[in-house]
Design a protein around this nucleic acid. Sequence first.
DNA 1: AAAGTTGTAACTTCGCTTGTTTCAACTTTC
DNA 2: GAAAGTTGAAACAAGCGAAGTTACAACTTT
Lengths: 145, 145
Amino acid sequence: MQITSKFTAAVHILTCIDIFDGQMRVTSDVLSGSTGVNAVIVRNVLGQLRTAGIVETRQGSGGAHLAKALDEITLYDIYKAVDCVDDEGLFHFHENPNVECPVGRNIHKAMDGRLEAAQEALENELKSTTLAQVVADTRKIIEEE
Amino acid sequence: MQITSKFTAAVHILTCIDIFDGQMRVTSDVLSGSTGVNAVIVRNVLGQLRTAGIVETRQGSGGAHLAKALDEITLYDIYKAVDCVDDEGLFHFHENPNVECPVGRNIHKAMDGRLEAAQEALENELKSTTLAQVVADTRKIIEEE
DNA sequence: AAAGTTGTAACTTCGCTTGTTTCAACTTTC
DNA sequence: GAAAGTTGAAACAAGCGAAGTTACAACTTT
């Protein structure tokens, strides 16, 4: 099992927008070309990022722009925006533990806190990284090529 | 996307083995009854846990037993045993970034370290929790019922 | 008015997770 | 040693979600 590639695609998309905005009109077609992700999927991702207040797009005119400063966008913001995990959480509990069994009816309670803590550890790490860092690294690697 | 329920099922299974071993023969049927998970799946999970050196099972005789002390089994050991994530890692990178594009051919390098750090944060949290803690909590909740 | 772009819905494809069926190999018990 | 119960494993089916695809209305710019 893996976290949807929409997440890495979204980071890629935002990095492109930052780097190419001003030089060209960054349309969903351009972004599809760079990411290798279908243009409709790109537009879906852009839609989710727009809902989250991370980018600005408009029908007709074409070209996406960042709606926030790079260092105000964390990887967690992006991860949340593209719905990597739903309300159920990262871990999928087996669905029919037997309530007739003392373990079956209590295992959920015994585990939930620990599963949440693990998920939180992941998310805190994502919160501590900003898009500014990723873009800076990308620019640096490009310059060193 | 979610981490396979085999993980929580495995923890449930191990908890049952610890609590019921001695009182009854803890067969895959018994475990299937408590977890609500198909008995064949239970046997698969037990097989993975056996490969990892966490439980002992034998053909014919029936009944699983723990192969280690409770406090020597971490949630991470179980998570690894049941193959929650493969070698690719927890995050799924979009597969065809365009190497003609400076961002496309470098985004992987720019992100990989940070994705690994996030995954590690999750796994470290799982490493810090032992089955002993989960079983202790489960017993406590049962007593308080 | 024409051309290009976004937003969205409906459908398809593919792979993964879980369940199911089946059966050989093994152990215990009578 | 035969019967009953259990494990291990393979093969197949069903269901679900991710990603791609097609199609088109709404919008902007020229």
